[in-house]
């Protein structure tokens, strides 16, 4: 049997699209951090948040039992 991964968690991956493709969410200069405008540091923070979301989805979708590596298929 092929174990189907938890595809529901893939919906989490839509979050970065909403957060970064709607410029009115972050189209301003203040508050700055160390002189860096909000526009810039907001996007840099989302790089990190997106990496965290991907790590979460990756963890959720790994098969629970066994080492998980699909080395030997269904054997």
């Amino acid at each position: 049997m092929v174990r189907r991964p938890n595809n529901w968690s893939l919906w989490l991956l839509l979050i970065p699209f909403v957060a970064t493709l709607v410029p009115p969410f972050y189209n301003r200069v203040n508050p700055t951090i160390g002189g860096l405008p909000f526009f810039d540091w907001y996007l840099l923070v989302w790089v990190v948040v997106t990496a965290a979301i991907l790590t979460t989805v990756y963890t959720l979708r790994r098969p629970r039992s066994g080492p998980g590596e699909n080395r030997t298929g269904q054997a």
Binding site: L10, L13, P16, T20, L54
Partner: peptide
């Protein structure tokens, strides 16, 4: 700031890759 479109681009490309 228009040039910073490269950041959203290189953020949302990773969900695309993963899927």
């Amino acid at each position: 700031a228009f040039g910073l479109f490269a950041l959203p681009y290189t953020i949302i490309v990773f969900p695309v890759i993963y899927v």
